[in-house]
Design a protein around this nucleic acid. Structure first.
Lengths: 246, 246
DNA sequence: CATCATAATATGCATTATAGATATAAGTGA
DNA sequence: TCACTTATATCTATAATGCATATTATGATG
C-alpha cells in the first residue's frame, strides 16, 4: 500500500491526503461473570501517558485489516484469548482523549466464560480481572467503577471509564432479546446458572418461574438429557444453546 | 498540530507513528418521512470512484474536531441543514471499501421533518430524497433499496447500502422506547401524524387505540390545547413533546 | 432402608399489558 | 338542523408476567 506524506503543499494532492489523519485503534471491553458479579479485563499501563493507570486492552488498526479483525487480533495478542463473542460497541473520538495525538478508537465488547481467563491472568502480570460496580438500575446508563482485588476503585486511563459505562448499558440492553448471555457460560449449563448470569448483568434478582418459562419458550435452548451430579439435592438438567441456523 | 510523516525507518519513532494511518470520515444517513414512506437524502457522485452513483453525504474528520462535531458539520455543509436529531450509528472499516485508499467511516444517522429538506433540495442539484424500500419485517435486518423519483432503485456507492440497511434496523429498534420518532415531526402534531410516522418506519399498520394509549401513558407528550383547522371533520388535538429535564 | 434437607421443577392464580372491536363525541359543510 | 367523517373513549379477549405453592429427585443421616 501507500506510505503517505501528509504535507500541505504537495501538488496534485487528492482529497484523501489533504488533511492530517488521526490514528485509529480498537479497544476491547472483555467482560465475564465471576461470583455473581460482572467483571472486566484491564491492563496496567507501564508507560506514559497514564502510566500506572488501568486501560482496556487495545491496539492500532493495521492498514490491511478490518475493524473486526483488529479486535480479534487484540483479543489474541493482548488478552491471549480467542473465540469470544465479539461485537462493535461505539467509536470515541474526542480530539484530546489521548493527550499525545489525535486517536480515534473503535470500542468493542467481548464476552467469555470466567474459566477462559485463567491462563492469561496467570501468564501476564499486567492484567487483572476487575469487578464492575454499577450504581444505576435498568438501562438509564451512568458511571461504572472497576474495583481491584482489595475492593478499591482502579484509576482508569484515557476515556475508558466512559467506554466501560457504555458497554454495561449495551450489555444490559441486549441481554433479553439476543443470545448474548450464553457467551458467558460453558457449553452445558443449568437454567439456574443462566439466571445467575442474567442477574449479575442486570444487578437485580429475577423471578425464577417466569425466567425459566421465558427462556424455554424462546426456543434457543435444547436439553442435553444430562444432569448435574453431586449436588445433595435434586440435580438440575443441563441445557445447551441450539446451533443457529445459517 | 502535527504534520506527520509515516515513514518506516525514522529513529525514536513513537508507537503512534509506526503504522500508516487510515483516513477517517463521517457519513450521514439523513432520513425523513414523506407520504407515509421512509426516505433518505442521497448525493450524486460527480467524480471517481463510483461516479454517477449515489452516496450518503459525508466528509473527512478534521484533527481538531470530535466525531459528533464532524457529523454536524457535514449536515450543515453538505446537506445544508441543522438542528437535526443526530446519533452515531456504527463504524465501517473493511480494508477496500474505498478502492483508492484505506478509509474508515463513522456512520451517523440524522432525522428531520420533511419540510426542513425543501431549501436544500431546490438549491443543490446533486441531492435527492430517495424513498426507502424495506423488504423485511421487524428488526431482523436485511437489504434496503433506495428508489428514485421514477421508482427505480438508485445504484449506491461504496458500502452505503450496508450502512442504509443498518440505519433502518437501528431506527426501527429504537422507535418504541426512545423519543426518536418525534424528530420527524414539527413542533406541534396530532396523534394520527405520530402514528403515521411510526407506521412508515415500521412498515406495518398499528392498532390505533393501543398506540394512543401507549403514547399518552409514556408521559412524553403534552397537550397544547389547540386543534387542527380546516379538516372538514372533527379536528384532532395538537400535542407537543414535553421539554426534557436536564 | 426410611427420613430429612435442599433446590429443581411444575402448577395455579392474580395482575398487568396489549390487540382488536365497537361505541360515542366533536367538529365541518350543506 | 342534519349528515358525514374522523377523533376519542370504552369494552372484551388474549397474552405476558409476577408471585405463591406444590411436587420431585438427589445426597446425607440415622
Amino acid at each position: 500500500m501507500h506510505i503517505m506524506m501528509n504535507r500541505q503543499n504537495e501538488p496534485k494532492m487528492s482529497e484523501l491526503d489533504r488533511y492530517p489523519k488521526p490514528a485509529v485503534t480498537v479497544d476491547l471491553v472483555l467482560m465475564s461473570v465471576q461470583d455473581a458479579r460482572l467483571t472486566v479485563l484491564l491492563q496496567r499501563r507501564a508507560t506514559e501517558p497514564f502510566a500506572g493507570r488501568w486501560a482496556l486492552p487495545g491496539g492500532f488498526v493495521r492498514v490491511e485489516e478490518s475493524l473486526d479483525a483488529a479486535a480479534e487480533r487484540v483479543l489474541a495478542e493482548k488478552a491471549r484469548m480467542q473465540g469470544a463473542w465479539i461485537e462493535q460497541l461505539y467509536s470515541f473520538g474526542a480530539p484530546h482523549r489521548d493527550p499525545r495525538d489525535r486517536v480515534i478508537t473503535v470500542a468493542y465488547f467481548a464476552l467469555l466464560p470466567r474459566a477462559r481467563f485463567e491462563a492469561a491472568l496467570t501468564d501476564a502480570g499486567d492484567l487483572t480481572l476487575a469487578t464492575l460496580e454499577v450504581s444505576w438500575e435498568g438501562e438509564t446508563g451512568g458511571p461504572v467503577a472497576a474495583l481491584g482485588p482489595d475492593g478499591a476503585a482502579l484509576p482508569l486511563a484515557f476515556d475508558h471509564g466512559d467506554i466501560l459505562s457504555l458497554a454495561v448499558k449495551r450489555l444490559r440492553g441486549k441481554l433479553d432479546y439476543t443470545e448474548i448471555g450464553f457467551a458467558l457460560l460453558p457449553d452445558r449449563f443449568t437454567l439456574r446458572e443462566l439466571q445467575d448470569v442474567h442477574e449479575a448483568i442486570l444487578g437485580r434478582p429475577l423471578n425464577k418461574p417466569a425466567f425459566r418459562r421465558r427462556m424455554l419458550e424462546r426456543g434457543w435452548l435444547e436439553s442435553t438429557g444430562e444432569r448435574e451430579t453431586g449436588t445433595g439435592f435434586r440435580p438440575a438438567e443441563l441445557y445447551r444453546l441450539k446451533p443457529r441456523k445459517g
